[in-house]
Write a protein that binds this DNA or RNA. Sequence first.
DNA 1: TTTTTATATTGCAATATTACGATAAACAAA
DNA 2: TTTGTTTATCGTAATATTGCAATATAAAAA
Lengths: 107, 107
Amino acid sequence: MGASKSEFFSEQQNELASLFKAISHPARVAIIEYLLKVDSCICGDIVNELPLAQPTVSQHLKELKNVGIIKGNIEGTAICYCLNPDTMKKLESYFSGISSELKSKCC
Amino acid sequence: MGASKSEFFSEQQNELASLFKAISHPARVAIIEYLLKVDSCICGDIVNELPLAQPTVSQHLKELKNVGIIKGNIEGTAICYCLNPDTMKKLESYFSGISSELKSKCC
DNA sequence: TTTTTATATTGCAATATTACGATAAACAAA
DNA sequence: TTTGTTTATCGTAATATTGCAATATAAAAA
């Protein structure tokens, strides 16, 4: 085997895992932080910012977009990417929910 | 190639990516949610809860423990696992920081 | 239309992850 | 010491990810 047994887990668990997988790579964390820094939305100079070739960056952007972490709007020849606030809030509330339920009754 | 170029990213970006990678699998999301539900700490009946063999669960627990998402205390023959509240708070504040900086000046 | 600019896709080699049977290790109880 | 219980590790097959050169696509500019 080797394939993930995702069919045995809930849809929500799979969706969360997909979100985390999308940001489980340092380049994609760096893309998120760069998009946060340049608060107007930037397209392809992410390629200049990162030590990765253009096809690699394009692939990383695609993965972030597929799970809804970023959005991309076509502006002429360029594409303007930005963070999706809804997804960020969803992730924030997931962890704040865990933190508030954790009554530190630990081993 | 194929290896991640992690040496070109910051230590913090790599650490965050490692945390997200640890929870980027539905079984590991399920383990976190199970540990949250049974608020006293449970050891090996995670194996009974999940549709995975014991060595597979053990491996998942190891990955969660390596990055500090869970803690494990030896209690006789068994090991008592629980969530690490510090790490959960770290993740919560990461996303709340992003959300608060995001002024929705988007494309 | 041709050229330029910006981004996406394809194909593939290198590497990493996933899952589990078999086995080992650690410890308590008999 | 032997047995039973619990968890970890090893080895390995199946599959997924990463990165990039080459190439394709799409839209604006000339």
